[in-house]
Simulated assay, not measured.
Amino acid sequence: MPDATGAGADGLTVGQVAARLGVTVRALHHWDEIGLARPSLRTAAGYRLYTPADLERLHRIVVYRELGLGLGRIRAVLDDSAADVPAALRAQRARIAERIARLRELDAGLERMIGAHERGPLLTPAQQAEVFGPGWDPEGPALAREKYGDTDQWRQYAERAAGRGPEEWRAVTGAVADFERELAAAMDAGAVPGGPGANRLAARHREVFAAYFPLTREMQVCLGRTYEADPGFAAHYDAIRPGLAGWFRRVIDAEARAHGVDPDTATWR
């Protein structure tokens, strides 16, 4: 007849113990080999049999292992009569608390990343208006995601957006505003597209734009076309200086051409 542990008079086999405890037969063999949990009995054919006392020790091993204790530490807790078991468990509990805190941080980071992929800047409508200005359309990121959400650039943008709060976004918008002032000043000063000063501005534009995602020269040429052709972008640049949108496109095209990119055939890549 089986006793309260479920073991019969001859004990439980390795397969029965593995099923009962939710561990693998391989783990039981390993614990036997290292002397952590050896079965007390063997059949005439040499098969392992575990007694109720063996099963109780295995229960404790499984519990301690689930708590994160290593096998060496488990052996000490079980076999060292001088071991301070509560102290060992408190220490492990402290380590688990640290892991929980880290997992909560990771969970919060994942939540921010999901939000950034779905919504863009993780700012309230009031924060967006304060950071990006009264002309900012809070629906803009959602529309952009609809159009570009399956691109590498949107994913790169979302990864950057996930880590930014209001101050970081202010720094980004400040850098863009500084660049646009440089652009207008260069146009006022008569800088010629293809000249050293204008070429530096094209390179500076890529650097500033990298706050959103890395920009190749070909992609920059495509943006330059958009700045000139899109009514919203053209109005933005021409409000800074009349004709700035077209001049900026010519600056981008000239710098790209000097580096072997044909503006007439450039694609988004």
Rank of each mutant, 00 (worst) to 15 (best):
Y148S: 00
R38C: 07
A101H: 04
A19W: 06
R26G: 11
P125D: 13
E118R: 10
R26V: 07
I100S: 12
L36D: 06
A94E: 14
M113L: 14
G70I: 12
V62P: 00
I114D: 14
L69Q: 05
A108R: 11
A161S: 08
R65H: 07
H117E: 11
A158N: 02
A44T: 05
A101R: 11
Q127W: 11
R65W: 08
R90K: 09
R164M: 13
G120K: 04
R42L: 11
V63S: 14
D150I: 03
W154Q: 07
E105K: 06
R104G: 11
A162M: 13
L41E: 15
A53D: 15
E139H: 10
A19C: 09
R38H: 03
A19P: 11
I100V: 13
Y47M: 10
P138N: 12
R90D: 14
Q92S: 04
D150L: 09
P86M: 04
R57V: 06
G68N: 07
E159S: 15
I34K: 03
G68L: 10
R90L: 09
L110W: 07
V23P: 02
T43K: 12
L41N: 09
R42C: 11
L110E: 12
L67F: 03
R112W: 04
R65Q: 13
H117Y: 14
L36Q: 05
H117F: 11
L103Y: 02
E33C: 05
R95W: 07
L41S: 10
R26S: 10
V63D: 12
P52S: 01
L71K: 00
A101N: 06
P52V: 00
R119F: 11
W31P: 01
L55S: 02
A101V: 02
G22A: 10
R99M: 04
G140L: 15
L143Q: 07
H30L: 13
I96W: 05
A161R: 01
P39I: 01
W31G: 03
W154E: 10
R73I: 12
H59T: 14
I74W: 00
S81G: 12
A76V: 09
A19M: 12
W31F: 01
G163C: 13
L106F: 13
A161K: 02
L123N: 07
R26F: 03
G109M: 10
D54K: 05
S81V: 11
A91D: 15
Y157H: 10
A27T: 09
M113E: 15
G70M: 14
G165M: 12
Q153E: 15
M113I: 09
R57T: 07
G115K: 10
A53K: 12
P134C: 04
Y50C: 03
I74R: 02
T24P: 08
A162T: 07
W136G: 00
R75N: 09
F132G: 02
R90V: 05
L143E: 09
L58A: 06
A45H: 06
E56A: 15
L36R: 03
R104Q: 15
G165S: 15
D107E: 14
R57K: 03
A18H: 00
Y157C: 05
A76S: 05
P121M: 02
G120L: 14
A162E: 13
V131A: 06
E130R: 02
R164I: 01
T24F: 01
